[in-house]
Design a protein around this nucleic acid. Structure first.
Lengths: 224, 224
DNA sequence: ACAACGACATACTAGGCGGTATGTAATCGG
DNA sequence: CCGATTACATACCGCCTAGTATGTCGTTGT
């Protein structure tokens, strides 16, 4: 949902020195640069249309180096999912589990997302959702990895809701699994559809709707 | 959401006669076959990865014929959106507007979708959502067409909800625009995410959650 | 110091892609 | 019946892409 990736990015060409003679080698850094630039390129173009040459140019790495670190484009894609996409997704929802009141935490995230919606995020959407849509039907390796990330997310939210039901911050007459699936679907669906509109109006409306839904999950104790 | 397209499909090769000599020409039919086969191929592979040769083979049409009817691959894609995707999406939601009770009609559609979820639909997702995710950031022509379809859908549901509020079948204290955005986001989001899971469990949970949400939109007249 | 291995760099290849040039047969207006 | 035009069919082209072969230079263990 967030733009991200912009954080790490650097002016592409200065990423690494003019090479050629007497350069210090930093295989770990090279690998990280490849992963990050690949993530950005995949975010913009999708995995299949992501050009290795473009990744090479933006990272300042050569083809020989790439194929030294990754056996194939597919292997690079898997590594991006495992080492960039997964931590990125988990950083989004895991904090909510730690919060005392799940609904408050979720509402805060909604508002944060609605506020921080960058041009880039609205245009290119959620990298996780993009990859699911593009690659899940086509490649088992992608599907299993993405499925695992989604599974953890889904189960995590379920646990959070159940905990809320236990400590009295969430209504007890709702089905945690259904609520979790609805929340996640709405979140990913709205960023996806926002790509069609050039304005954030639709996304904002969906977020406001989701906020109202979250409010409705609070236990109604009118008279104490 | 629905598998669709399977309806029209025919055994690819027998689609048209062995051609060669003395064939009747049917330009309209040829065009329709191209559109339908292109829709199927795009549904499976996405637009950019859709191979013209594959479309040609499945439709039994030659490249010369294709470029006679459509000036480019992009033009073919636009025509698919205008003449196949748009009617397909509208056929899904327009009936709901005609119903007396919107909530009942929407619930019926939810259950219908959850029941009719075919292998293909779960695997390849919603053609409309797929195209938005893939092409909206990349091509203005696609974006404007898809945006228009989404806009009509969104506005249509808003009108339906307002009408429901007017005739007393929907609570008056909800914001129609937000509710519409949430419903559509959830629907498209859940089919999208279902592609990651190979099982329909997540999609079903989201649908049940949406049903519960729709129920909550009914006016609560406990004691008449 | 030197060998061996790791970390790159460069040049090249094969295949698939959208698109085009050109030919030919059916259809149609007069 | 006859040109003109529509509706195809076939062969080909140039580009871009993932991938590879091979060479070279740092780095490291002994």
């Amino acid at each position: 949902m967030k733009a991200s990736a912009a954080n790490h990015s650097m002016s592409p060409q200065q990423a690494r020195a003019p090479t050629k003679a007497g350069v210090r080698r930093q295989p770990d850094l090279t690998r990280q640069q490849l992963l990050q630039c690949a993530f950005d390129e995949i975010h913009r173009s999708g995995f299949r249309a992501a050009s290795l040459d473009a990744i090479l140019e933006s990272s300042g790495v050569t083809k020989g180096a790439l194929y030294h670190h990754f056996g194939s484009k597919t292997a690079l894609g898997y590594a991006v999912v495992d080492e960039v996409v997964r931590p990125w997704v988990e950083a989004l929802w895991k904090p909510i589990l730690e919060a005392g009141n799940v609904i408050d935490a979720a509402l805060a995230l909604c508002r944060e997302l609605a506020r921080a919606r960058s041009e880039q995020a609205l245009q290119y959407g959620c990298p996780f959702n993009n990859l699911i849509n593009e690659m899940s039907p086509l490649d088992r390796g992608f599907r299993e990895r993405l499925q695992h990330i989604l599974h953890d997310w889904h189960e995590g939210v379920i646990v959070g809701i159940r905990r809320g039901q236990a400590n009295g911050s969430v209504r007890k007459d709702v089905d945690a699994e259904q609520v979790s699936a609805l929340i996640i679907s709405t979140a990913e669906g709205s960023v996806g559809l926002a790509k069609a509109k050039q304005s954030p109006a639709f996304f904002d409306a969906a977020m406001r709707g989701l906020e109202a839904y979250l409010e409705s999950l609070r236990p109604l104790r009118a008279a104490p």
